[in-house]
Design a protein around this nucleic acid. Structure first.
Lengths: 128, 128
DNA sequence: TCCTAAATTGATAACTACTATCATTTTATG
DNA sequence: CATAAAATGATAGTAGTTATCAATTTAGGA
């Protein structure tokens, strides 16, 4: 990865912002500092830096929402090979709501855990 | 909420599908059963049923991804009043990856927890 | 049963977040 | 310097979703 003024600026703005800006918000911040960056450049750099581990992209799921008739509390696992979504029992994270409420004092209305990885079937298929 | 053929069909297809279909996939399933439903109607009903608690919408975050310079393992809380994103320490869900790996046998590459609720400041503001 | 108001539908158009294309510019290195 | 690789950014396009709104359907009364 080569150096570029724009990337430096983007990382700079991101580092000095305690909030977790969206691309749109970053564009705005950059404009305010008179360091305009093209939209494409911004997105490209955010993705590059995220896959280089320099920053973190928080997006949980792909573009489209999934719907589930199972309204019991449970979590989700998305296989990056086959794209299938699997249910994960809520017992894998006991008292996560209680812990979080105690740690923050916030009111928690809902929460979701999304795992990304490779499911059993795809693991098997890749071995052969 | 009044009865409607379309809503019944949508819920029916959703209930009989162990996978967690996207709106697009649902549209396809409905077509296969010769019960065409308009795109708008589908989305409207999914959202209505989700907010009525009849089904669950899995999307974790709003449309746009957020970026974070903090690459330490941590989770996120989104305040539904002010929209701010807060960091939550990973200690609120100890051994969640280990538990999930043991429960499923899946390879877990990454995971994210997103809480929705009301932050301290907004709680205070609403009291006054 | 019929009447009416409220709810629902669905075609169309629009919006938002994001990505592909590609000519131009910048950076790193021999 | 020279040159190849990398990066930029304007433009156009895509995907998922929502707004608009006239036409249809539903749920209760009279």
């Amino acid at each position: 990865m080569n150096y570029s003024k724009q990337r430096e600026k983007i990382l700079d703005v991101l580092t000095n912002n305690p909030i977790h800006p969206t691309a749109d918000e970053l564009l705005e911040f950059l404009k305010e500092e008179n360091s305009n960056v093209g939209l494409t450049t911004l997105y490209r750099n955010l993705n590059q830096m995220a896959s280089a581990g320099m920053i973190k992209k928080i997006d949980g799921l792909e573009a489209s929402a999934h719907f589930d008739h199972n309204t019991f509390e449970h979590y989700h696992f998305i296989c990056k090979e086959c794209g299938k979504v699997f249910d994960i029992p809520s017992s894998v994270a006991p008292s996560v709501v209680k812990n979080t409420r105690e740690a923050t004092g916030f009111d928690i209305i809902s929460h979701d855990i999304v795992f990304h990885g490779v499911c059993s079937e795809c693991k098997k298929r890749k071995e052969n």
